[in-house]
Every structure is written in structure tokens, then in C-alpha cells.
Design a protein around this nucleic acid. Structure first.
Lengths: 190, 190
DNA sequence: AATTTCATGTAACCAGTTACATGATTCA
DNA sequence: TGAATCATGTAACTGGTTACATGAAATT
């Protein structure tokens, strides 16, 4: 407790989603909810019970600041804007290296991170992310295949097929990321 | 509150995982933890703080019954066995129709359900599951593609690529399920 | 006039995380 | 003998879910 710990770079998936959206454009809780409920962006709850408290937390961390719009009319709207501190936190979060843990437990976070990089990171930094992603995914793939080989004989059909789904899914992710790298490299040369 | 509601078929992902494992073979909380921490089966926390309370809940629902092994020695082991009621609950849960909601929000649950079907369902029932799965996935795929087309112009590269990942992932799932159906149909004829 | 949408919230509940705690047994 | 593993738990915290609540403005 004596050290400052800096920490603060641990966003929950929901917090990251909200912060990322507000980073793109200042908006209200209702706007965020609408985004979650009407677009595929957001495998997230659009329930007010999740979003409004999350916004309060994010604000109390100093990452966004709310300002009431439409003060005159009787339909106020609390619009949140990213602060400098919020920018830093988001940037630092997006820059975190991709770990094996991430690809196993937090794939959705990784995709969310990628989706938000456009506005916040340099192309080079996004490329680094994608390369780390490929490497972690492929390393995990290897261990999945190894495991499957070891237990294949003793595994019932359903188990084998379920494992195949996992392997296929990581294969697809590696392929996707390689394609994304190409896109980014193509774009750079323009 | 007056009606009996039957309900009780809502398993959390963790409860389902635990119940499914115990259905395959009577085992202790520690065994379950080991399974989660040492095999790819289980994108689940192996933390005792999750598993032991979950086991208690499951037991208090009457789905499993614990019995102390090794009473003589000083290293007791609480081994849980599936009850008739637990069998029913599991079976009913696995038989639930695949909804759009499932493929959007609970893909991991669906895979878990599939993995556990081997011991509990008839081949025909598993086939029905897979066919429903394909149909829901493809229907959702359609809407994702539609959405992408609508917003493609206005979307930055990262957004488009992130959406592509989602689409690829559902495509892969549909392909996987079709393959699984073939396997099952091949098996039947033997 | 009634319904839908805009807009923000709270309260009770539930389940999972982290960290801590205990102690026996086995292995190096 | 010390470390790892077996084995089961608890407590405080956190954050998300469901359901409820309110009311203005726009739409039908």
C-alpha cells in the first residue's frame, strides 16, 4: 500500500466497451445502451443496471466527465466526454501485450481492444498487437492439438468434436489476424 | 409464487460444467478443479471460491449428493454423485432448443452442452441440436452480413476487420456443425 | 388518447474473483 | 526436511442481472 502501484489499467470488458465508445465520440449512457442493443458491436448487456453504475465508476476514476446537455428543456441528457486521464488509461490498456491468458480467457476483450485501436494507436502498434495475437494463438493451438492427440483414443465422439470446434476456432482466429496484418500493411504503403 | 413454476432448468455455465462432469463420473470438488485447471475442457475458473460454493448449491438443489470417501484415513474426500433429479435437470437442459440468444450470448454454453450430450442424449436428439444450431447461426450470420453492408462505407478499417472476425467465427461454427452432423450420420449407419 | 421512445436511475440479488486459511500426505 | 500436491473451505469484494420506478417528448 506504500507504493503508488499505478495500476488502474484493469478495465472490465464492459468498462472497456463504454470507455472505447466514449473515446470515439462524447455520448450519454442512453447512447451507449442503444449502441449495445441495436448493433452487433456489443455482446454486452444494454441493461441500465449495468451501464449507469459503470459510467459512474468510470467517472469517479476520472476517465470521463459528464456534463448536462439541454439544461433549458426538461429532458436533460448527461453526456460523457473522455478526459486526458481516460485517454491515457485507454491507450495503456490497448497497448498491453497479448498473453496466453488473454487468448484463452478473454478473446472478446482482445477483439474489443482491436476494434478500438483505430482512433487511439499508431498503425505500428496495432500491427504489433496483431503479431502478438497470432503468435499466442498459434502457440495455444499447438498445445490443443497435442492434448487432442494424447487423449484422442479415450475420448468419445462428442468430446472430440467439441475439441475440434475449439481448435477450428483458434485456427480461424490466426487466419483472420494474418489477413488483418496484410490489410494493415497494404494500407500503409498507400 | 403460487404456481410451482417447475423452472430449475437454468444452469449457470459453471453449474452446467460441474454437473456435466459429475454426470460422467462421480467425483469430488478437487477432481473438478483439476479438470478445469489441467485440461482445455473448461474455460472455467478452477478457483475453490467458485467451485465449492457451486457444489453446495447444486447439492442443495438435490441434483447431486455428496458422500465422504476414505472415512477411516484422515484425508476425507467428498465425492459427489448425480441424483435422478440431477439427471433429469441435465437432460432437460441439454434438450432445450437453440435460440438466437444462445448463439449470440452463450456460445460457450452451447459447446459445453454439446460436449455433454454423449452420455445423456440419443443420437437423434444431438442431431436435432446440431441442426438447430446451424440454422440459428446461419440466420444470425445473415443479419451480421447485412449490417456490415449497411455500414461498410462509414466504418473505419478496425471496425470492419473486427466485424469480419465475428462473421468468420460464425461461419466457422456453421461449418463445424455441418461436419459434426455428417460424423453423427456416418456413425449411425455403422 | 395511447403507445413508443427518450432518458436516467435504484434495490435486491447472485455468482464469481481474490486472497486467505488449514492441515494431511507424498515426493525429492 | 522442505516443497509440492491433495483436499476443502471461508470472507470480503465486485460487478452484473432482473425488476422496478419515474417522467418527458414524440409518434400513431
Amino acid at each position: 500500500m506504500l507504493s503508488t502501484m499505478s495500476a488502474e489499467t484493469n478495465l472490465s470488458t464492459l468498462s472497456l466497451a463504454i470507455l472505447g465508445l466514449i473515446a470515439q465520440k462524447a455520448q450519454s449512457g442512453y447512447d451507449v445502451r442503444k449502441m449495445f442493443s441495436t448493433t452487433p458491436m456489443g455482446h454486452f448487456s444494454s441493461s441500465p443496471g449495468a451501464i449507469y453504475p459503470a459510467l459512474k465508476r468510470i467517472e469517479s476514476n476520472g476517465w470521463v466527465r459528464g456534463r448536462i446537455d439541454n439544461k433549458k428543456t426538461l429532458r436533460p441528457k448527461l453526456v460523457y466526454k473522455l478526459t486526458k486521464k481516460g485517454q491515457d488509461v485507454l491507450r495503456r490498456h490497448l497497448l498491453q501485450t497479448v498473453t496466453r491468458d488473454d487468448v484463452i480467457w478473454h478473446m472478446d476483450d482482445l477483439m474489443l481492444r482491436f476494434a478500438f485501436m483505430g482512433d487511439v494507436l499508431e498503425r505500428e502498434e496495432t500491427l504489433r498487437f496483431l503479431k502478438e495475437f497470432v503468435s499466442e494463438v498459434e502457440s495455444y493451438l499447438l498445445s490443443l492439438r497435442q492434448y487432442l492427440n494424447e487423449v484422442r483414443e479415450s475420448m468419445p465422439l462428442n468430446g472430440k468434436l467439441a475439441m475440434k470446434q475449439g481448435i477450428d476456432s483458434y485456427k480461424m482466429n490466426a487466419t483472420w489476424a494474418k489477413g488483418a496484418i496484410k490489410e494493415f500493411e497494404r494500407n500503409r504503403r498507400q
